[in-house]
């Protein structure tokens, strides 16, 4: 598929967003490795982190190809600054505890399933292929996070309190997930990314159903601001995450590992 320059740029941007979401969330989950509540969960969280970082690697590799400046997925992961990262603010939030981790994951998984399902019918073959491979993994992630959310929400009083607290803390990062900016508008207009309107309603619908079952309350919908992470505006947490992630690669530029 031959693309105009402005469409190409938009596609590059879009792929960065997809890749960065998964890289940063995968990184956060990998921080659990060795510290999970039970050894079985060490393995489960590790698996999800592996899937996400694998997906990130594929999206960033494709992004680098679309950009055509000879960069690799590693260049994109290790040699961009925080304002050049396009991931959602939601995924860069710290693990805090298992409740925050599961709520963050559940919010993301529901969204990710919507986007990936949508992209499987994308006319750019590589992207459609990546989406359908990722979707299989994402469906399992959703099963895992949803089942845990039910258990934490409807477990003990303490677990309900902790989970509700996590919901209240993370809720404010969910609005921007569904903002559609010029980049996406252009891609939708050109038929590269299928129409995404109604996503927030679908997302809310799933969240609502699960919350009812999990005895959790949806916070007041007072989200009238947009965070703007898709344009590189982040919380302070991302900088620290990147400092750790990139230290080795940046300390020895040009070295092979």
């Amino acid at each position: 598929m031959k693309l105009d320059n402005n469409v190409k740029n938009a596609l590059f941007e879009f792929l960065l967003r997809m890749g960065d979401d998964r890289l940063i969330l995968g990184h956060r989950l990998s921080e659990w490795c060795g510290h999970a509540p039970v050894i079985e969960e060490d393995i489960a969280l590790g698996n999800i982190a592996l899937d996400l970082i694998g997906q990130a690697s594929a999206f960033l590799n494709f992004a680098a190809g679309v950009e055509g400046k000879g960069r690799t997925e590693d260049d994109l992961a290790y040699f961009r600054n925080e304002t050049e990262f396009k991931n959602l603010q939601l995924v860069e939030q710290p693990n805090v505890d298992f409740a925050h981790t599961i709520v963050r994951q559940y919010f993301f998984d529901v969204y990710s399933n919507l986007v990936l399902t949508n992209l499987t019918s994308c006319p750019v073959n590589e992207l459609a292929g990546m989406a359908s491979k990722s979707l299989k993994e994402s469906k399992y992630h959703l099963r895992h996070s949803k089942q845990w959310l039910l258990r934490l929400g409807d477990g003990t009083d303490l677990s309900n309190e902790k989970t509700q607290n996590a919901v209240n803390n993370l809720w404010r990062f969910t609005k921007e997930i569904f903002d559609i900016d010029e980049t996406e508008k252009l891609l939708i207009e050109k038929g590269i990314v299928p129409e995404m309107s109604g996503f927030r309603e679908k997302w809310l619908d799933s969240i609502n159903k699960t919350f009812m079952e999990a005895k959790l309350k949806l916070p007041e919908d007072n989200l009238d601001f947009s965070a703007g992470s898709r344009n590189g505006f982040h919380t302070e947490h991302l900088g620290h995450l990147l400092a750790e992630m990139q230290i080795l690669a940046r300390s020895y530029p040009g070295a092979k590992w």
């Binding site: 510290h35 509540p37 039970v38 969960e41 505890d97 298992f98 477990g155 303490l158």
Partner: peptide, 8 residues
């Protein structure tokens, strides 16, 4: 830290 999760 995991005790409350296992109990839940």
């Amino acid at each position: 830290n995991g005790a409350w999760v296992r109990e839940a």
